[in-house]
């Protein structure tokens, strides 16, 4: 494969992997992994939203940990931005329900897992891993 085509494949695969968990693997024809990541990480994020996760961005630098948690949620890609667009998790109340902390943890873990999935896609795309 010519280097320019290889670079384009790597960038596209990583972009797809960021946008939707598992899509990068599906693009690289890693069907089983792609579907497993799509379902498992998607479920984790969806259950988090169902448990009233907060997707509110922190304002200012008063709570750096909250900023890191928001960045972790953003790593989920399109589902995160769609949820925000639909105004899910944007309630002003800090405590919306008894499960909101679990919900936030589920969504943050989903985003962080998607980062690992993106790294896996990169390794496969550059040829470091075969599957």
């Amino acid at each position: 494969m010519p280097p320019s085509r290889r670079s384009s494949l790597i960038v596209t695969a990583c972009l797809f992997a960021y946008l939707v968990p598992g899509l990068g693997h599906l693009y690289l024809r890693q069907w089983v992994k792609g579907i497993v990541f799509l379902v498992a990480i998607g479920l984790l994020f969806g259950l988090g939203l169902a448990m009233d996760a907060r997707l509110v961005l922190p304002t200012g630098w008063g709570d750096p940990l909250a900023l890191l948690r928001s960045i972790a949620q953003m790593a989920m890609g399109l589902p995160y931005f769609i949820a925000r667009h639909l105004e899910i998790g944007l309630d002003d109340r800090l405590v919306k329900s008894v499960t909101h902390e679990y919900g936030s943890t589920f969504t943050e873990a989903a985003g962080l897992l998607n980062v690992l999935v993106m790294l896996d896609v990169y390794d496969i795309a550059v040829g470091r891993k075969t599957s």
Binding site: V36, F37, A40, I41, L43, L44, Y102, T105, F106, A109, L113, L116, V117
Partner: peptide, 8 residues
Amino acid sequence: FSALVSVV
């Protein structure tokens, strides 16, 4: 949570 993370 444990099941989903373990699978990934």
